[in-house]
Design a protein around this nucleic acid. Structure first.
Length: 191
DNA sequence: TTATCGATGGTA
DNA sequence: ACCATCGATAAA
């Protein structure tokens, strides 16, 4: 994808990333997944977005140019892979929550869920701030997903974000067998 | 099948 | 203290 693809609002990019191929090439190993689930984090005003904390060492990358990876460690042991979107100065990104195995992944490898897909593709914080238009890591068009096959719902694990938690900014390919299941209801913070 | 627990470390 | 999670375990 050209850089212009990413330099648009996160919700638009989240929609168009469905069906796209995520290619990671390292140590002679090429791994490819087809994106089937995304979440849009649309800016500083979005209380579920890390950028709502303002410009910090961690969130700085989200405010930078689009088409760059934002990868962070969560719960001390899992990584989450995001694509920085929108204009420079806007703190927005798209979290890739699930891909479908396409190439270079051992049979049975699970790629549903942000942590599992990072593990499968070998993505870590070493990839943070890296450009997404390089041979080592890039996105390319895959099978287009028609609007009739796209489902939308609330983002996972952001119940702390008040009204923003209800916004339907999670998008997925409805019939994919590789969409994440999400946490059971019990994990949610009480009112 | 669904629900609950705890690991584990960056970040503010 | 709080997490944009996951795998094991328990309950039903």
């Amino acid at each position: 994808m050209p850089e212009s693809f990413y330099a648009r609002p996160a919700l638009v990019v989240a929609r168009e990333l469905l069906g796209a191929l995520l290619v990671v090439e390292e140590g002679g190993q090429r791994r490819v997944g087809r994106i089937v689930e995304t979440e849009a984090y649309i800016g500083e005003h979005d209380l579920a977005c890390h950028a709502a904390k303002g410009l910090t060492p961690r969130t700085e990358v989200m405010f930078g140019p689009a088409g760059v990876a934002y990868v962070y460690l969560i719960y001390g042991m899992h990584h989450c892979f995001n694509v920085v979107t929108d204009a420079t100065g806007v703190g927005a990104a798209v979290l890739v929550r699930a891909v479908e195995p396409v190439e270079g992944l051992p049979p049975g490898t699970r790629t549903d869920g942000p942590g599992r897909l990072c593990k499968a593709l070998g993505l870590t914080r070493a990839h943070n701030r890296r450009g997404l238009c390089t041979p080592a890591m890039h996105l390319r068009p895959g099978t287009p997903v028609p609007e009739s096959a796209v489902s939308r719902g609330p983002r996972i694990g952001v119940d702390y974000a008040g009204a923003w938690a209800a916004e339907p900014f999670r998008l997925w390919v409805r019939d994919s067998q590789h969409v994440s299941k999400g946490p059971p209801p019990g994990r949610r913070k009480p009112a």
